[in-house]
């Protein structure tokens, strides 16, 4: 995990910072330079909710190399309201509990770590509400 690559996304991963289009009101997470809905380039800062509902999910059993020791783990796409969805892992949840429509909230968790000497990478996972 490259430190600058990790560092520059902190505002989103730690604090869910987003932007809201001044023209059409669309909330963008992560922020963008141009609104895909109305092409406006003027935004105000906002934050996405920390509560949402699961729209779909899976359980990753064959993970990419950096998640070998975590598998199997559930991953979901969560609707946070305001037309914002995020993809994240589901923590503290048994596979059989997972359901579309399940209410969840985002918690601060360690997402990745690089061996025993690389940086620790934090971010959000959702947990059953």
């Amino acid at each position: 995990m490259s430190a600058p690559k990790y560092w520059r996304e902190m505002a989103q991963r730690y604090r869910f910072e987003a932007v809201k289009c001044k023209k059409c009101g669309r909330v963008l997470f992560p922020p963008r330079l141009v609104c895909p809905a109305c092409k406006s380039r003027e935004f105000e800062n906002t934050r996405i909710n920390d509560k949402g509902t699961i729209e779909t999910y899976t359980i990753v059993r064959i993970p990419p190399s950096q998640f070998t020791d975590e598998a199997p783990y559930p991953v979901a796409i969560v609707n946070m309201g305001d037309n914002v969805r995020v993809l994240c892992q589901v923590a503290d949840c048994e596979p059989e509990e997972l359901k579309i429509g399940m209410p969840v909230r985002l918690e601060f968790r360690k997402i990745q770590q690089e061996g025993s000497s690389g940086i620790l990478a934090y971010g959000y996972k959702c947990v059953p509400e």
Partner: peptide, 13 residues
């Protein structure tokens, strides 16, 4: 990379 893969998703996923 930052909003899908970072969180552990794969293509089968």
């Amino acid at each position: 990379q930052e909003y899908e893969v970072y969180n552990g998703i794969t293509f089968p996923g």
